[in-house]
Design a binder for these strands. Structure first.
Lengths: 272, 272
DNA sequence: CGAGGTGTTGAGATTTGTCAACCTACGTGG
DNA sequence: CCACGTAGGTTGACAAATCTCAACACCTCG
């Protein structure tokens, strides 16, 4: 069973998406084909609780109907399945409906870097824009559902709906800024500061989504956290233990409770 | 005198821009005001040698004229001047015509991180899109000229010229991908590998622009390189010396010659 | 119930940072 | 045009942070 459901701090807020057909046969693990004109009638951005972070966020009601035409289909992605891989042809931007993803980047020398973790409402695949193929891989860390938004449709609607055009630019810029934040994290912060920042960020994003920000289950391994933070898994593990010892958090494997968020925040401000 | 001109490897290829008025009085160091309709008649993307990396890159000839309307004005930025600062109202995306910039990001705790170096043809300010203000600061590392492209105009033209819309998305995505590359650099590479990657990258970009890729003058200090690479300036300095000792490069202060590019590339591939 | 993936912890090695001294180059102003 | 001041660069000795290797514990899933 999905470990999320064993954590009482997660509400079942996303029930609507439970109607998605989940028979194995309908699971499409490579980019969907796009029979022009077809689309899932179940998708209604106007009723989606995740709209604020998603592409439709902040759009005036009168434009929403147009934008809903973009959402071609939902797609179920099982744990460890790849939503897309680096090098796959770029067709869609995806919005996470439920679940949790990592994106990672490999280089020719065998290095592997986790470039982000994505939860409900967040967008995946924007790096594929313009070049024809995705530059990193998106992998589900738990069974997940996504909305697939074909770029060909986004382009067309964006030309006709300025609010969407503007919004698209905003989410692209947000991704650029996110990158800059990680550069600061990796370039200017100690291991301790990085992990504190990571936990605080995770906590905030969970809270925004109506989950508990103080008690949650990590969806990723120590190794994945380490890759993301530029640390070895042992260092991450030791820091979890140290934070626990110092009364900042409770940890037991993937279950984390933040006991003293102020204390974590103080770790980020050693200067002054 | 500008140190670039003392380096014979730099051609004077960008002569046309030398006509820009450079009396102190015309130097505008804050974002230009935008008297609607006005624009510099000297700007002709069609004739610009930097078009390939710039916003107008790859556009069909018939669309270029429309796009040229976007370029509102050139602006001269003196060494150490700020093209924009984090928090300034976002109005324009800038293309570097001549010169060299760094972008850097400060946080509330006084950390400071260089997020990029930008040379001719490269674009600055895209992180300001959507949020109304720039998120980082752009500082000229030598006297520079930029093209200012007001976002309000870009938006309008992009709606009417699909090729520009597509191109805009592509350059935004390119910036996202650049960020991912730096994450890999900072998260997965040793100090030695980072500096080697930095030099190789610089060399490639200079070569693309018709400069020498093997002999060049660094525009930034060791401290700025260090910030960008997540290293201390002493470490950067030691590595330069070590590369010199190993016969990979010649260094004397800011003057660098790459002697053995293959050797540098080998440093990036220690695995195998 | 066993296997394999994941997490923890220790000891010691290595890399990188810190502090300090000194050197070099460049721009400014006399 | 030179002298000086200052920012930037180099190098050494040492300290500290992080990694490596290794052993073992835990947990989940089949």
């Amino acid at each position: 069973m999905d470990s999320r459901t064993s954590n009482s701090s997660y509400p079942t807020a996303l029930a609507p998406s439970a109607e998605i057909s989940s028979q194995p046969g309908t699971v499409i693990s490579r980019p969907v084909e796009l029979p022009a004109g077809a689309r899932s009638l179940e998708v209604l951005c106007a009723k989606c609780k995740l709209r604020e972070t998603c592409l439709s966020g902040g759009l005036p009601a009168e434009d929403l109907a147009r934008v809903e035409n973009i959402v071609f289909a939902r797609r179920r992605v099982k744990r460890n399945e790849h939503l897309f891989d680096a090098g796959d042809e770029f067709r869609c931007i995806y919005a996470v409906l439920t679940g949790f993803f990592k994106t990672s980047l490999g280089d020719s020398e065998g290095r592997d870097q986790v470039t982000g973790f994505f939860m409900d409402g967040e967008l995946l695949g924007m790096d594929g824009l313009g070049s024809g193929c995705y530059k990193d891989s998106a992998i589900a860390l738990e069974d997940s559902d996504v909305c697939a938004m074909p770029y060909s449709l986004i382009e067309g609607v964006a030309r006709q709906v300025p609010s969407l055009q503007h919004r698209l630019h905003a989410v692209l810029a947000r991704e650029i800024v996110r990158g800059h934040g990680i550069m600061m994290l990796l370039g200017s912060m100690s291991a301790e500061e990085r992990l504190a920042a990571f936990l605080i960020n995770l906590s905030k994003r969970l809270l925004q989504r109506g989950y508990s920000g103080s008690s949650f289950v990590l969806r990723m391994t120590r190794d994945e956290i380490g890759s993301y933070l530029g640390l070895k898994l042992e260092t991450v593990s030791r820091l979890f233990s140290a934070f626990h010892r110092d009364g900042l958090i409770e940890v037991q494997q993937k279950q984390v409770s933040i006991v003293d968020i102020k204390g974590l925040e103080r770790l980020l401000a050693p200067r002054n």
